[in-house]
Design a protein around this nucleic acid. Sequence first.
DNA 1: GCCGTTTTCGGCCCGACTGTTTTCAGTCG
Length: 573
Amino acid sequence: MAVTNKIVAQLFDETADLLEIEGANPFRVRAYRNSARFLGDLAPSVADMVRRGEDLEELPGIGRDLAEKIQEIVRTGTLAQLEEIRERTSPELRTLMHVAGLGPKRLKTLHDELGVRTATDVREAAASGKIQRLKGFGVKLEQKILQEIERLKSRERRIKLVEAQDLASALTTHIEQVSGVQRVQVAGSYRRRKETVGDLDILVIAAHSADVMNRFVGYEDVAEVVSHGETRSTVVLRCGLQVDVRTVPEESYGAALHYFTGSKAHNIAVRKLGRKNNLKINEYGVFQGERRIGGTTEEDVYGRVGLPFIEPELREDAGEIEAAQEGRLPELIRLEDLRGDLHIHTRETDGRHTLEEMAEAAQRLGYAYMAVTEHSRRVAVARGLDARRLAAFLERIDGLNAKLKGFTILKAIEVDILEDGSLDLPDDILRELDLTVCAVHYHFNLSREKQTERIVRAMDNPYFRILAHPTGRLINERDPYDVDMKFLLEAAGKRGCFMELNSHPDRLDLTDTHCRLAKQMGVKVAVSTDAHSITDLEFMRFGVFQARRGWLEPGDVINTRCLAELRNLLKRP
DNA sequence: GCCGTTTTCGGCCCGACTGTTTTCAGTCG
């Protein structure tokens, strides 16, 4: 089986966890964690790099030792050092690291003193009062550990950005009602527009911090108050989501916003830059010795370390600092750059609204065009169109287009890519269309080779234009099908095909890292909604968030073009 | 274990909150 970057990352993460429980040098542990995080997000496959004999030590955070370990994993599928650590520790302990209040030190104590290995062991030890008698533990801690073990399951999941938005706006409104509140800003991965959010970090500027904290922990949706301090409190909502609220003085707003927006890795990189110039950066500001010299705005924080403002979506320590230093940060795409939507369904198949209603809604959004992309016959549950129904539908579009002014409905189809790589409709009818959006809806479990070959074969069809939702994943519901994305991008580039970034908040497919890879490989992207109703057209903002996380600029996205330019792009060479 | 305009050793981001302590360790973000 091919060794993916994810597998390497998982092995390094496990190594980090077990080393940490053993009490190893924390910086050594960090080296494993950092490289795991980096590899987990890295688009090019390290296995391919090893095969091509490329130098892994070029990768940030990978030195001679880790490079050798990556090679070992690629060669053997495993890591001898990790096997040894597993032998001499209790690998089951790892899962207990997710229990709030249990870190490496306490776990080691529980393991060494009480022989604890599993959640059940902890429960039994707590029930017989053994934990509270350990040095450094007590009655309260024992109770908390017990409570958190029960809660473990509900806390595991990250929620989709769209769900986080609803929770965040309700909470923000709740806090804004405290008198003396000047600003309430959600930071964290929410502000970086990550596709999923693990918790909410809310920053508040207020005259009376204590009032904010009291109001916050009293929110009706709070299931548990984890901590309640002067300037910081943490709760868990009924849905299991953790929320942190933090207040800072007004002059610290920029430094605090930067700090709480993260990512952690980005912050560390910025602070390191500060240290080089003898500056200390924390959530209160930028300091030279004891003297505070800045931090009122984020721009100021960046300016103090010689950087231009970096958009939140880029703050992952994935090259944005270097790009900022070299003046080559991307001018990220914005929602208003889009001139149309290239993936829309109507009642003709499984949409909720009529062709006319969707066209009207698209015009209200200020678009110049939209592509209607009904399902093809293979998707029987959606009453997919065969050639005859499609031909009749095209006539209706012509009729409507004749009446429309300053807006054009592009004739298109979401045509299925069948298992053998052929398209679900004959070329004679595909020829009549302005574009095709081609999609895999069945046979998700082919091998990586077969799935990749199937899609590339489909791209060989001269009417193939855009690959819809290129990995088929549904966030938190369905894994992506196994496909060699780099190979697909190469194939698309050679054939003048495009990749869709499907903006549906359940899909967001391409991922951010795939968008970036597409850009690097010169493959342009269509940011589309896959709308099945008028309100779905608003999903475009999520696609734009994801595109921005993928470093995409207006020029990288085909539906930023005016109609004439778009038509030109859609002509296959 | 990584890294280098303090460069091959000696650093490695920084502060709040809690609970267990009697000045601080551990955890978390």
